[in-house]
Amino acid sequence: MEKRMIAGILVFSLLAVFFFFGIFQLHPFGEPGQVQMDDYIITHTQNETGTNNGVTSVVFDYRGFDTLGEATILFSAVAGVLLIFRRVRH
């Protein structure tokens, strides 16, 4: 048990060091570096999709296929929950 604890602490500190070090290589908060894709969406969303809400236009138009996947995830979760509880109901 004790060995596991020591290993865990060691590993976590290692991970934390690397993550913190990696975080400082990112662009600073509030100043995204490259924005070509998002700027395209912001300037074209009203003309291309006829939508005022940029997020909705991304969710349902530009990346609509992801939303289909998202709906599928919900569907499979419901099917899974009903499958697991199938003997409990009725």
């Binding site: 596991r4 290993a7 865990g8 590993v11 976590f12 290692l14 991970l15 690397f18 070090f21």
Partner: peptide, 19 residues
């Protein structure tokens, strides 16, 4: 929990190597 601990362990070791 140990499964995840192994995952984190391998993650840390590989990060050490590649880092």
């Amino acid at each position: 929990s140990d499964y995840i601990l192994w995952f984190v362990l391998v993650l840390a070791v590989l990060l050490l190597i590649l880092g």
